[in-house]
Design a protein around this nucleic acid. Structure first.
Lengths: 146, 146
DNA sequence: CCTTGAGTTCAAGTTCGCTTCAGGTCCGAG
DNA sequence: CTCGGACCTGAAGCGAACTTGAACTCAAGG
């Protein structure tokens, strides 16, 4: 036990990600493995951290392609240091904060909407955020970017 | 102007959702329309609210199928009252709170991870939340439900 | 040595949430 | 009455993120 490298099955068990998904991530260049003589994958333990990072990022709604380019910021040759990860994490933290703020706003708008009797659709915070669309005539537009 | 019903184009403009998406929502039973003599859709203004609800829910990561079953809770025959919507909104607010809490935890874990030197993978909050997996041997599991 | 479970590749299939296309109809301004 | 833009349907296509299947190899215990 406590071996240097993990098989795909072990990495799958420990990360909670299916082997098929791990192979898929590898094809996309998100994780890497060495091969045994018999062509089987062996993962360095640091790959576990990459997988964790991938799953966390997905939770925030980031695409695998974006995650890949973020992970590309990590040093290619050497094993990433804590500082390398810290840089990555700080950037992602901002994303999380953004996302949290968006959801908070959504929640507050929804709360505001509960009491406003806005079947009239005239003053509902959700339909007419910040009253900024009042000038565009009756019936406001939904402004959920995406 | 201020007509009783909206064409699909008008609903699309006001909701920011493409006509093709609106037809798709209709096929899934998320919104409803009456038809003119010439078979064109006409939307009651309250459908605008449904569409808003759909988009907001999507932001929170809810699938269209789940949204549909939530909307099914609205009265079938009559136009939903503000109270009807309030009940729906309160339930969704809980979801938002949950989601916000999850992201907050993720962010805090990420912060904690920055300083912890956890390339050892032994004590990282992300890999080993609450140290609850310490008993399962070295190398913790990722616990991101989904 | 043999078996068995874990691993390999590559191609194709699946689900979700739409968009696009083809081929036609409707309707309102001029 | 005619023209053009908005609308109709049904089927097909698309991108993301995987999963599944077939056919095969590897590796470790008995």
């Amino acid at each position: 036990m406590h071996e240097a490298n993990l098989t795909i099955g072990q990495l799958a068990d420990r990360s909670g990600v299916a082997p098929s998904a791990l192979r898929y991530y590898e094809r996309l260049g998100l994780i890497h493995a060495t091969r045994t003589g018999g062509n089987q994958r062996r993962y360095a333990r640091t790959e576990l951290r990459r997988v964790a990072f991938i799953r966390i990022s997905q939770q925030v709604g980031v695409s695998l392609e974006e995650i890949r380019s973020a992970l590309d910021a990590l040093p290619a040759g050497r094993t990433p240091t804590p500082d390398d990860w810290a840089a990555l994490s700080r950037a992602w933290r901002d994303r999380l904060d953004e996302r949290i703020a968006l959801l908070g706003k959504l929640r507050d708008d929804l709360d505001g909407c509960i009491g406003c009797g806005c079947l009239s659709l005239q003053r509902c915070a959700l339909y007419n955020p910040d009253d900024s669309l009042a000038a565009e005539g009756p019936g406001a537009r939904l402004v959920l970017p995406r």
